Measured scan of single mutants.
Amino acid sequence: NCLEGLIFVITGVLESIERDEAKSLIERYGGKVTGNVSKKTNYLVMGRDSGQSKSDKAAALGTKIIDEDGLLNLI
């Protein structure tokens, strides 16, 4: 459970895995996936064609922004 207690938001199109697979992977390792960035969000996983508003909010809140490889490296 290397992601225990961590909260993730996924945005954009992921290249190597589907969004549902990424969500399942995060949950399997103890993390939680939500739909919107908040002060409780630990990581924003940004894929291709992701919206600017979520990354702006993450930056404003100090949320770590990672890509798909960054997510896989956490596991």
Rank of each mutant, 00 (worst) to 15 (best):
N1Q: 08
N1I: 05
N1H: 02
N1R: 09
C2W: 05
C2Q: 07
L3I: 05
L3H: 00
E4Y: 07
E4I: 03
G5N: 09
L6K: 15
L6E: 05
L6F: 05
L6D: 03
L6R: 07
F8G: 03
F8R: 03
F8K: 03
T11C: 09
L14R: 04
L14W: 05
E15L: 06
E15V: 08
S16T: 14
I17S: 07
E18C: 11
R19T: 12
R19N: 14
R19L: 13
E21I: 04
A22D: 00
I26N: 04
R28S: 12
R28G: 09
R28K: 12
R28N: 05
Y29I: 02
G30D: 00
G30S: 03
G31T: 02
G31D: 02
T34Y: 14
T34H: 15
T34M: 12
G35D: 15
G35Q: 15
V37I: 15
V37D: 01
V37E: 02
V37L: 14
S38Y: 04
S38D: 15
S38N: 14
S38P: 02
K39I: 12
K40W: 07
T41W: 00
V45F: 05
M46W: 02
M46P: 00
M46S: 07
R48Y: 03
R48K: 14
D49N: 13
D49Q: 12
D49L: 08
D49C: 07
D49K: 13
S50E: 09
Q52L: 10
S53I: 12
S55Y: 15
S55T: 15
D56K: 15
D56V: 12
K57N: 08
K57M: 13
K57P: 07
A58F: 06
A58H: 07
A59K: 11
A59L: 13
A60M: 12
A60P: 08
L61T: 09
T63V: 15
I65R: 07
I65M: 10
I66L: 06
E68V: 14
L71K: 03
L71H: 03
L74N: 00
L74W: 02
L74T: 02
I75P: 04
I75V: 07
I75H: 03
